[in-house]
Design a binder for these strands. Sequence first.
DNA 1: CTCTCTGTTATATATATCGTATAACAGAGA
DNA 2: TCTCTGTTATACGATATATATAACAGAGAG
Lengths: 133, 133
Amino acid sequence: MDLVFEIDFQSDEALYTQLCNQIIIGIAKEMVHEGDPLPSVRQLADEVGINMHTVNKAYTVLKQEGFVKVDRRKGAVIAVDINRLRALAQTKHDLTILLAKASCMNVSREEIHALIDEIYEEYGGSNIHGNSI
Amino acid sequence: MDLVFEIDFQSDEALYTQLCNQIIIGIAKEMVHEGDPLPSVRQLADEVGINMHTVNKAYTVLKQEGFVKVDRRKGAVIAVDINRLRALAQTKHDLTILLAKASCMNVSREEIHALIDEIYEEYGGSNIHGNSI
DNA sequence: CTCTCTGTTATATATATCGTATAACAGAGA
DNA sequence: TCTCTGTTATACGATATATATAACAGAGAG
């Protein structure tokens, strides 16, 4: 399974952010794995019809966040190297706001839990912390 | 309990976004309720040391999202009037990206569920969908 | 060595967003 | 009338976003 990139030019999300999210979701869904090469900045830019520098910014952000590293031979490759503590803190911060909105909208805790399971089904059913089944 | 506003000028979150989030979290935590008046744009701007228009933008966004309405007598008041379907869709979209990042960082599904409960404890233990206890 | 690919950097430009600033308006209450 | 409310208009500067053209060093293939 290979990554398919689709850009929504009408979205309010920045183009490079859309690319970042699609790659991160691709990793989570195990469509790509550690060491897999990403398209070159020029190739991906041409493929989705945006500028090379926009792709380069996406790769740079992903690199800073630890999702990608640069291999001089292969180019940009998947590389999940992580500061897990920071990841947990960021996750909690984002969840706090997301759940506040959901709570205000009368989305119950049970509905959230169900949503979590529904989404997580599509992601790696197995990771080192064993969330399989 | 009254809302206390604190602005982090070092944050990468926009100032008006910080205000929006604090008010939404305040509603979720039931520190404020339907009909409660918010500070006037000028008063709040002066209180936290930012421009009136920045506060006004926060109120405008909250109004568009249904968290606030304008009462000519009281000014801006809390008003949780909601398109629940849109709320669910938005919640799922945001969760999809958030969980993808968490999954890549090897944050397990169980840890997410625990985080959900931890955060939800601080929010309304009771809403119309009965997520109490 | 040459050619071509990689990411990377430098400049420049255009547009949009963010935050501030000053000013004014209409509605409502004292 | 005076004062408060949200709202609107306009302007300015700073930053973010996206594009464009150009060049560079490292690495692989011929």
